[in-house]
Amino acid sequence: MKKAENTGANRFRPGLNRAERSRKQASGVALSSVLVALTLIFSYVEMLIPFNFGVPGIKLGLSNLVVLVALYVLGPGYAFVINMVRIMLSGLLFSGLSAMLYSLSGGLLSFLVMLVLMKSRLFSPVGVSLGGGVFHNVGQLLVAALVTETVKIFLYLPVLTVAGTVTGTLLGFAAALILRRMGRLPEWNVPMGTGTDTD
């Protein structure tokens, strides 16, 4: 089995000398900003697709794919910053401040859930993305319930959970395929029925 040399854990290993480390940091910052730009393009493309189910919050969430891949490749710190900057900028550019509140709560909760699921080392990117997708919608509903002061808003929970499950699974598969091509699927990510597959 081929071992990936440059996995997330030893990317910023303290053993590296100073110059090497600052070079890595600079490349991390540069890559993050490119990824933020990519999420904004994804948000814009999604905005162009008319998609009205009568319930706000149902969309593919392509930008979450970027955050998910960044979580594995760059680590939680960079992924968190990418997520926050993405929410601020797309809120200012596209959706407006009040809608930004919803994406902020959804984004924070889903990031937290994805981080915990990833750190548990039990889930593949599919499971991580699935949990993130579902809790993104839960976070949005929580804020919506607070804003309107209506508990009845949770009647939308089943619809949003199903939507989050479908989009989360699809994006998780996409992320897993991207990570595998990059050679960045963590080595602890042992899928079911392994041993037969020689890659």
Binding site: L117, S120, L122, F123, S124, P125, V126, G127, L130, G131, T165, T169, F173, A176, L177, R180, N189, V190, P191, M192, G193, T194, D197
Partner: peptide, 13 residues
């Protein structure tokens, strides 16, 4: 697409 899903994913689903 094979060799990605893990058992915990299915439990979560």
């Amino acid at each position: 697409w094979k060799g990605i899903i893990r058992k915990a994913d299915l439990v979560l689903l």
